[in-house]
């Protein structure tokens, strides 16, 4: 499903000789739910961004379902991401001027042919927020925001779900609930999931743990 080969990634504006990321191979099977761990600054976010196509490695292949997105143009990667990737951020990044429902709908806005009437309502129901459809993000608790962010990430029926420290901003109890929701959703829809975290407790809940440092 996900296959990274001979990756090297460094940030050009930083005068460091060693790349941020450099490894031979990483394979993640279809439907697998993988926790990405590592020290702060080890390159977890960088790796997720390469999987989403927001970043490309300096060298190497990023194959998702057979497509080497590292070889695509930026516009092609955007289209690929719109159609295939769901992304949940640490601070969720809901758009402030939009209602909960609209935020969820935004998840499929750029995926042509993926808009589906009623899907936002369905997803909101599945994360238990159908009664908050008309609220604005700042009227929600942080845990509720996390669930809206998950609904948004699922809106385009992604094949890959990326999450960057999704529980980092939550208290332990809420974190557990959100994590369970994430893992259940991925399993239910057969989505391959990669989640960066430095919380061992969170990582333990996944099918597989990959330490970024071990890749190098």
């Amino acid at each position: 499903m996900i296959h990274l080969l001979n990756i090297r990634k460094s940030y050009e504006n930083v005068a460091e000789s060693a790349p941020v990321l450099g490894f031979r191979e990483l394979h993640i099977g279809a439907g697998e739910r993988v926790a990405l761990t590592g020290e702060s600054g080890s390159g977890k976010t960088t790796l997720l961004n390469m999987l989403s196509g927001l970043l490309v490695p300096d060298v190497g292949e990023v194959r998702i379902d057979g497509t080497n997105i590292a070889a695509l143009s930026e516009a092609q990667r955007d289209r690929f991401r719109a159609a295939n990737i769901g992304y949940v951020f640490q601070t969720f990044h809901l758009l402030q001027g939009y209602t909960v429902q609209e935020n969820v709908e935004l998840g499929a806005l750029f995926a042509r042919g993926h808009q589906e009437a009623g899907r936002a309502a369905f997803l909101l129901e599945s994360v238990g927020l159908e009664h908050r459809r008309r609220h604005l993000p700042n009227q929600l608790s942080v845990g509720q925001q996390a669930r809206v962010a998950l609904a948004r990430a699922l809106m385009n029926k992604p094949r890959v779900l990326l999450a960057d420290e999704p529980t980092g901003a939550l208290d332990p109890e809420t974190g557990r609930q959100v994590l369970a929701l994430l893992l259940d959703s991925a399993q239910q829809y057969g989505i391959t999931m990669v989640c960066a975290t430095h919380d061992p407790g969170v990582a333990a809940a996944f099918d597989k743990i990959v330490r970024v440092e071990d890749l190098q």
């Binding site: 989403s52 927001l54 930026e74 516009a75 955007d78 289209r79 991401r81 719109a82 159609a83 990737i85 992304y87 951020f89 990044h93 758009l95 935004l106 998840g107 806005l109 750029f110 995926a111 948004r152 385009n156």
Partner: peptide, 12 residues
């Protein structure tokens, strides 16, 4: 940035 992450092109 969020719109880009959701698949919006720069041109969009």
């Amino acid at each position: 940035a969020v719109l880009r992450a959701l698949g919006a092109k720069r041109r969009t």
